[in-house]
Design a protein around this nucleic acid. Structure first.
Length: 442
RNA sequence: GGAGAGGUGGCAGAGUGGUCGAAUGUACCUGACUCGAAAUCAGGCGUAGGUGCGAGCCUACCGUGGGUUCGAAUCCCACCCUCUCCGCCA
């Protein structure tokens, strides 16, 4: 019998020992995320598990010992029927135990798999985004001496077509044509080059369709299936379920899944430009106008795989890498620390970068950088051999650097001119064939 | 899609249904030798879980899931994946 089944082979996100031994402390920390942990329910399951597992193992030990005896007796040519009768008596209870245990373990695992990561101790406690704390600002929002337009109005004559997208695919899809399509491509290229040439990341091109295990590893499954698009292979409608990636974090982070890395391989810094697919199931009528919230958008993602002692430092660096893009693009932004109630499932600490959008007269999220500590590594079984030669879980971090669609929006709105043209920031011009401004084709 | 081969420890690679959790090599750790290192020699060295103050004892794990058996890495069934060749295809 196997205690580790397919579904629980990936350990729950929280250390199961922590749950067993310090459940009250875990409950208190999760409470800051607005989550009520069913301590009594968990402990009832645990008590049951402990009794059943102990009994199962007792019976197995007995069976193994007797079977070994049978082997020895038969080897010597002696009669083993008495021992075989004895082991036969164990059969029924053992079978019952072995059948009951996996289901119980599965329930415990499912319970634990749906618990989010524990916030770091100094993360501000808050219920929602109102509890987030601003860390710093960069740049001054521009004063306009003409009536400013939003990116939808600015983009329309430049090739930003929402009606075409809707006709092809439905709402929340955009079709880009001409100068705006080129600007979109230039932004992604510029970001990739900056991260690879200046920040030490290795460029990657990754699959956009992944299996369930990968999404479990980074924490999107089992809890957030409704946020994803899932796909089936043609001619194989009964077949394996796979998913479109909601971010390249999935593929970059899972690239070390089930690996035991050596110390000298760390840190690993990866970046990729990819489309991201999100069903936006829970977003209701939010941001229906424009390309702020799309089912498909491009993003340049940064991922770091580091030693546990170095992840805090790595997060600060990674935020700096994302900020560098905004600075080069001359886009005002602010950095905020997400409070406990606003953090994502896998994160122990998250900084959001919010770019100034003049037409909305506010800062909007354009990057999110998180330290997931060992949470994802535990689910992925991504480890390294530490200095003591022991396998230890790595720490994983991910951050957008940046969301390309929203960056496009920010460039349009912040660098718009009175005549509706867009001034291209100097850093981006080499990627635009030297063009200094884009304007509607005649 | 067709035909074949194969999935075993960090890696490589053995394994007649019965002390096989698994030979061997390599990597790694410790010790000896050395001024130091290399080489050499000796020892150690998988993961997870249970139980115990502890040395330890026990259970599970040889791609995944099921089956046969007193007993499965080994036999049977299904599935997944990888590789080679053919076909199709951007």
């Amino acid at each position: 019998m196997q205690l580790i089944t397919e579904t629980n082979r990936n350990c729950p996100m929280l250390d199961i020992q922590l749950l067993r031994n310090q459940i009250d402390s875990v409950a208190a920390r999760l409470a800051t995320r607005g989550l009520v942990l069913d301590v009594a329910g968990f402990q009832a399951l645990e008590d049951e598990r402990k009794a059943l597992q102990t009994r199962t193992q007792e019976l197995q030990a007995r069976r193994n010992a007797l079977s070994k005896q049978i082997g020895m007796l038969k080897g010597k040519g002696e009669d083993a029927t008495a021992v075989m009768a004895e082991v036969g008596q164990l059969g029924e209870e053992l079978k019952a135990c072995e059948q009951a245990l996996p289901g119980l373990l599965e329930r415990i695992n499912d319970f634990a798999s749906r618990l989010p990561n524990l916030p770091q101790a100094d993360v501000p406690v808050g219920e929602d985004e109102s509890g987030n704390v601003e860390v710093r600002r960069w740049g001054n929002p521009r004063q306009f001496d003409f009536e400013l337009r939003d990116h939808v109005d600015l983009g329309a004559p430049l090739g930003l077509e929402f009606d075409t997208g809707a006709r092809l695919s439905g709402s929340r899809f955009a079709f880009l044509r001409g100068p705006i399509a080129r600007l979109h491509r230039a932004l992604a290229q510029f970001m990739l080059d900056t991260h690879t040439l200046e920040h030490g990341y290795t460029e990657c091109y990754t699959p956009y369709i992944v299996n369930r295990e990968a999404l479990y590893g980074t924490g999107q499954l089992p809890k957030f299936k409704e946020d994803l698009f899932w796909v089936l292979r043609g001619g194989d409608e009964e077949g394996l379920e796979q998913y479109l990636i909601p971010t390249a974090e999935i593929t970059l982070t899972n690239s070390v899944r089930e690996e035991v890395l050596t110390l000298d391989q760390l840190p690993i810094r990866l970046t990729a430009h990819s489309p991201c697919f999100r069903s936006e199931a829970g977003s209701g009528g939010r941001d229906v106008r424009g390309m702020i919230r799309q089912h498909q958008f491009d993003k340049v993602e940064m991922v770091q795989i580091v030693e546990p002692g170095k992840s805090d430092e790595a997060l600060e660096q990674m935020v700096g890498h994302a900020e560098a893009i905004l600075k080069k693009l001359e886009l005002p932004y602010r950095v905020i620390t997400l409070c406990t109630g606003d953090m994502g499932f896998s994160a122990a600490r998250t900084y959001d970068l919010e770019v100034w959008l003049p037409a909305q007269n506010t800062y909007r999220e354009i990057s999110s950088c998180s330290n997931c500590e060992a949470f994802q590594a535990r689910r992925m079984q991504a480890r390294f051999k530490n200095a003591q030669g022991k396998n230890e879980l790595v720490h994983t971090l991910n951050g957008s650097g940046l969301a390309v669609g929203r960056t496009l929006v920010a460039v349009l709105e912040n660098h718009q001119q009175a005549d509706g043209s867009i001034l291209i920031p100097a850093a981006l011009r080499p990627y635009m064939g030297g063009v200094e401004r884009i304007e509607a084709p005649l």
